[in-house]
Amino acid sequence: MLTRAQFDAACKALITRYTESASDFIAVSPLKGWAWNEHSTYPNFGFMSRTVTVFRRPDTSAHYFDDPLGEEVLEEEHDATVLSATSETESFTCQQYVVFSSTFRVPAFYFLLSDSSGSPLPLLEVLKTSLFKINAWDNPEVSSYTISLPTATFPLLSHGDHPTLGIPCWYFHPCETTAVVDELMREVAQDGWSEEARLARWLEMWFMVVCSVVNL
């Protein structure tokens, strides 16, 4: 778990580390392209944001989500390089946010996907984009407003207001994050890390966990 101050420090350390080493500003890595934002009036509402382009998967494949209407939703094997090279593929703007979850005291990944007219994509359309990895979950239950696993307490993905901006977003539920990231940290921890280095590493590990289901 992190405190709000540790979250702020971790985000700023990560931004510094990856901005300096980035040769361009295109968000080609999960860790690049992030910017720090504050609320216009109130302190302690800072978050990271970036904008990337994602694509609709071509209808070629082999993986199915259960559609609540009983239709099968096609999902194909994902290859990011092929997709981004296909100029014909429909593209969408993906606003991504890393915010601090006040309830679970960890970062949480929020996002919005919109088409060229600015309209947000419905959840079933969101799942057909290159943002999502194929086979990210076994037998997810998908509705128009949530993705759940039968055994989980919280939905994996649901809608909620951005804690700073107040706008509706999709977000991955952060409740299982701490245990997973802490376990990873035990593997990589090194003596002599500064607090800043430890926090930045913690956030890198968190991104690794998030990247098990999405392509950042």
Binding site: P120, S158, H159, C169
Partner: peptide, 17 residues
């Protein structure tokens, strides 16, 4: 205004929230 609303106000979505 879907860009601000995202989801229609249905009882099912409300229950989930």
């Amino acid at each position: 205004p879907t860009e601000k609303l995202m989801l229609a106000p249905s009882p099912e979505a409300c229950k989930q929230a």
